[in-house]
Design a protein around this nucleic acid. Structure first.
Lengths: 248, 248
DNA sequence: GAGGGGTCTTGACGTGGATCAAGCGGACCA
DNA sequence: TGGTCCGCTTGATCCACGTCAAGACCCCTC
């Protein structure tokens, strides 16, 4: 007889074998573009899932680096707590995206990965990933692409912060979310923001009042409708227009 | 008799075998942390140098991606030309740094790599790098570190743009340059800016007039001395203080 | 269903940095 | 040696966004 049946069962669920080959996100995530056989080799290294409750961190700045995390479900932010206590948001992340790449360079994480809602991540032990990708050429290449795209993404944000005015930043932010939701099979035009106005502002280099005001303005202009965290995009072209025709 | 002795000689120099194992930058560049034998394996793939004249680009946005470039000498900027003709600077780069990582993800470059002075780069054919790093474990790991550090660096810039005021940005910029010069054996306190005020401003999300004004202000405060592009840092702690004690 | 805390909205006002404009100075070249 | 151009400096003014403050709304708990 098992002395702790309930606990044992929980552990069992947590450590349930996760297989990339049957994962619905495989076209977005690390297995993207791999053959069936290659994905099966990936299965050998991605063998644990971890549940994360809203408000918990997958890792924190300063934690030693051992693994990458592929988001299976849930919505996350990465952030850095500055000396003065403010929290600077460096990104928002959704299923299929890989977290933890910042840790490779120094063997320790440089930011927190914070769950904005309950979710689940696949744990990818990094040394195993390097091992397998020495054997599976396409996996190696795919991983390099993932890292490169992260660099390009960051440079896009740098551009946003360096050159855009507040309205343009918000428009770019909404359109970006919309595109990423579409890629995951959700509605492009109607979604729930998981983050607060303050977190959006932190990410975009704006104050929460400015974010709020611009949401109101977009609503008056008929570009979007806002009800708390529920957003409906009414005029995608109108938002895009703000980006295309910005002066100077 | 050679009809074109001078040209022939130039070509010869261009294609001179470059060896990482005898390169003075090996402690900063890709070979960092590799053993002598491992560096010799790297030698097999880094076999061409390319000279770049001031004003030329190593590659341009949209160019197909085939190689990475390790800077041997010279000072570079990466930039994107926006639809409206403005040039947004995304980074400044010095010897030992690797350019071109942005191209891996989409097989084509997303920015220009522009020489701010005459220089030389080592051409690293990317498919060969992947090949060799499947065999040389430490090279694989070192390359992953290089990419990861690039991600962390970009996030640092995002933070700078998202949270700092103009003076703080300039102070951070000068201190960052200073550190990177030290690592290369140059003076930490006295250096030549290779870029214009406009390029600095573009990188930092400021206008050239603002950059100029703040340089003047720093000079009045005795933090630095400025003479055109020649900068001398007089009070490192004072600059650091601006970063440590920024309110909110 | 009452109380309370966190989040959001909106208004009034202040300011850091952008914009506009003029003049300077060094590098390059004839 | 003088002219020209480009990059830099500096002043005057403007405005986008931040700051401060009040109040509304929503959700949670008891």
């Amino acid at each position: 007889m098992n002395p702790q049946p309930a606990t044992a069962k929980v552990i069992n669920i947590h450590q349930l074998k996760t297989v990339c080959s049957s994962c619905s996100l495989r076209e977005l995530c690390l297995p993207m573009g791999l053959s069936r056989e290659e994905i099966e080799q990936l299965d050998q290294l991605v063998y644990t899932r971890r549940r994360v409750k809203r408000g918990e961190n997958i890792y924190r700045a300063g934690d030693g680096f051992t693994s990458l995390y592929a988001i299976r479900s849930g919505f996350f932010k990465t952030n850095v707590i500055l000396e003065d206590g403010r929290d600077q948001v460096t990104g928002f992340h959704m299923p299929g995206e890989i977290l933890g790449l910042d840790g490779i360079g120094t063997e320790s994480h440089t930011c927190n990965a914070h769950a904005l809602e309950d979710g689940e991540v696949c744990v990818i032990p990094f040394s195993r990933l390097e091992e397998v990708s020495r054997e599976v050429r396409n996996l190696q290449h795919q991983f390099h692409k993932v890292m490169s795209r992260e660099i390009v993404r960051d440079q896009g944000v740098m551009m946003l912060l360096g050159t855009m005015r507040a309205e343009e930043r918000l428009a770019a932010f909404l359109l970006n979310l919309s595109q990423r939701f579409v890629a995951r099979g959700y509605s492009p035009s109607e979604f729930h923001l998981r983050m607060t106005r303050e977190e959006i502002g932190s990410y975009l280099g704006l104050k929460l009042e400015t974010v709020s005001r611009i949401f109101s303005k977009f609503q008056e202009q008929g570009l979007i409708s806002v009800q708390q965290k529920h957003i409906r995009i009414l005029d995608t072209d109108g938002l895009q227009h703000l980006l295309d025709h910005r002066e100077k």
